[in-house]
Design a binder for these strands. Sequence first.
DNA 1: ATCAACTGATTCATACGTTTACTATTTTCG
DNA 2: CGAAAATAGTAAACGTATGAATCAGTTGAT
Lengths: 189, 189
Amino acid sequence: MAAKSTRDEQDRGRPDAAADLDFWSFVALANRRLAEEYGFRHQLATEVLLTLNRASDLVTYDLEAAVHRPRGRSWSAFRLMFVVWLAGPLEPRNAARLTGMSRAAVSNLGKSLVADGLLDRTPDERDGRSVQLSLTGAGHAEMVSVFREHNEREFGWAGALTEAEQRILVLLLDKLITGHDGFDARGRR
Amino acid sequence: MAAKSTRDEQDRGRPDAAADLDFWSFVALANRRLAEEYGFRHQLATEVLLTLNRASDLVTYDLEAAVHRPRGRSWSAFRLMFVVWLAGPLEPRNAARLTGMSRAAVSNLGKSLVADGLLDRTPDERDGRSVQLSLTGAGHAEMVSVFREHNEREFGWAGALTEAEQRILVLLLDKLITGHDGFDARGRR
DNA sequence: ATCAACTGATTCATACGTTTACTATTTTCG
DNA sequence: CGAAAATAGTAAACGTATGAATCAGTTGAT
């Protein structure tokens, strides 16, 4: 296992014991204390979820910082434009469902993106309550351009795994999610 | 593969084509269009990262909504108290590194938690600039109690996988992260 | 011993997302 | 047909995270 430091025994109680803990040695320490001192039983579950969240945060933060912020866009703006690009035109309701944002977030974000000339919001003829979101020409051009860079950097991350490993990872995550299914994008039933 | 709907061919361009897309069929649709219409090459990487983020968001949202919000605590507050509990006492700097938050976030959050009587912030004798975070008695009691519920619900998620599968998942995520190593908790070098 | 450079924590202004409440439209069904 | 319920989108209030600036203490060179 790559970066697991070994120094997580001894020196509990030393003044700055936490100073040289890294993520992996913290997980090991947490596992040990939760089991030995408190008797919790599902340490592997804790380790799975800690690692899952850690990986997701790290990758997201990197993509946002390296690709999107320099162009003046937020991670959420990219996500919204991504689904409008590939699944659009669509209603805010469906955009929210597919991105996992709230409807209000789509509404707010959409307002900015319309102001920036990247998104069009046209009234729905069928349903007077609703609206259709679509990319403008400029929005489409920006997505094609930004996704080129985004996709290369995604590959930089996923490329640490072989293709077979990547497929297994998707399968396992799929099983994790759908084993708990019946939720929509934001955990609502 | 469990919930992959098959209706992601045909009917592009139908007025509400997105209405019955779910997450998996959206991923399939995105893969197809990115490859066929735009010629992007790393679709598997896109699928891996979309699924990773999705899984992480879903699990986090569920734990926060089911376990922590009902007790009036945020997800971030739990994360901070978790590391202080198991790796503490520690300095805000190290708490930020282990949780992946910014130092400012730790400072803000810490203020609330101290006000609520869950956290102690005592000056460091060695270094007058610094401070040591530790749990109060009430904070410790709350963590033991809340983690019992948290851990059961974690198990509810991870339990969708066999133990062997869980170990493989951790290994793969580990490899994904450390294959890109040299980052600290928030992607800083 | 002193000053400059560094490091740690905090505060401030800002941005973003969520929840709740509201308005408008559509649907349902008595 | 018409009133009640449901649904879509938006606005307001709130909480929380972030980066920049600030304050304070430490370190090291001279």
